[in-house]
């Protein structure tokens, strides 16, 4: 148990440090969400139905978490392959899942920078009062959202690796998920057929939980939905990662594209 925890902790810490040194990830995590929060703020401010600044800041922060997961987890195994470390990751005694899972949760954890930067942006530039209605629930919602998105990252990492042009797929999926999960809009504006897609994506419930905790409302159901989805992602990720490992070993294509 101690060994498993230590492995999780150091793999997580290593990947957080690794991603923090990357200019690309830090930009995605900190500066890009501020651009979107700024635009959303001016749009809501000038509209006939003004939205809360906190609404925009939290939505843009969650956009940053999704981008980190999408690019960080989606390319995780491929990067190990390019760096020549995939053989070591698979060759060590612990299972592949025990190595990859903390790394994908680390990519979601980088998203804390996003939430922090958009809240700080609101507070410093626009005097956004950071008095959350349920501060403790906010912390719980943030942790659960990050874990849930990290588990979604596990699914992405083990499926994207099977595709030749995974990077362009990641580019493709950034905006649609921002849109369909209602990070800056009300889901009721979207066509009905998008609803099932929204409901199976963790960011939908993550942002609902964060807004419930910050702006008022009951965040518990959204947190529960996030946890339940996380478990589903874990099961799917377990199978897809196992499939990738067996396939790569059987066809001797571990280090090949």
């Amino acid at each position: 148990m101690t060994h498993a925890f230590r492995l999780f902790w150091f793999s997580w810490l290593f990947n957080v440090k690794n991603l923090t040194t990357s200019g690309f990830f830090m930009l995605n995590a900190t500066i890009s969400p501020i651009f979107f929060a700024t635009i959303a703020h001016y749009m809501f401010e000038s509209g006939s139905r003004p939205g809360s600044l906190l609404f925009a800041a939290l939505g843009a922060g969650m956009m940053g978490i999704w981008s980190s997961v999408l690019f960080g987890s989606g390319g995780l195994i491929q990067w190990q392959r390019w760096q020549g470390t995939l053989e070591y990751v698979i060759g060590v005694p612990p299972g592949l899942m025990q190595i990859v899972l903390p790394m994908t949760i680390a990519t979601a954890s980088i998203g804390i920078y996003s939430i922090a930067s958009t809240l700080l942006w609101g507070w410093v530039i626009f005097d956004l009062p950071l008095d959350f209605v349920h501060p403790m629930w906010f912390v719980v919602a943030l942790v659960v959202s990050i874990v849930s998105l990290g588990l979604l990252g596990l699914v992405l990492s083990s499926t994207f690796v099977l595709l030749r042009n995974a990077n362009s797929l990641a580019n493709l999926l950034e905006y649609p998920v921002w849109l369909v999960t209602g990070l800056l809009i009300s889901l009721s504006l979207l066509p009905g057929w998008t609803r099932p897609i929204s409901y199976v994506l963790a960011p939908t419930w993550g942002i609902k939980a964060l807004r419930g905790a910050a702006l008022g409302g009951d965040p518990a159901p959204a947190i529960a939905a996030c946890l339940a989805l996380g478990l589903v992602y874990l099961v799917i990720g377990h199978f897809t990662l196992g499939y990738f490992e067996v396939r790569a070993r059987r066809t001797a294509t571990l280090a090949l594209r």
């Binding site: 635009i39 959303a40 749009m43 809501f44 000038s46 509209g47 006939s48 139905r49 003004p50 939205g51 580019n171 493709l172 950034e174 905006y175 649609p176 921002w178 849109l179 800056l184 809009i185 009300s186 504006l189 979207l190």
Partner: peptide, 21 residues
């Protein structure tokens, strides 16, 4: 080709949500 269309859709829906433009 596809990403810009989704960027447009995102801002169109934010605009509708805010009731502006």
């Amino acid at each position: 080709l596809v990403a810009p269309v989704f960027q447009i859709l995102l801002f169109v829906f934010i605009g509708r949500s805010a009731g502006v433009q």
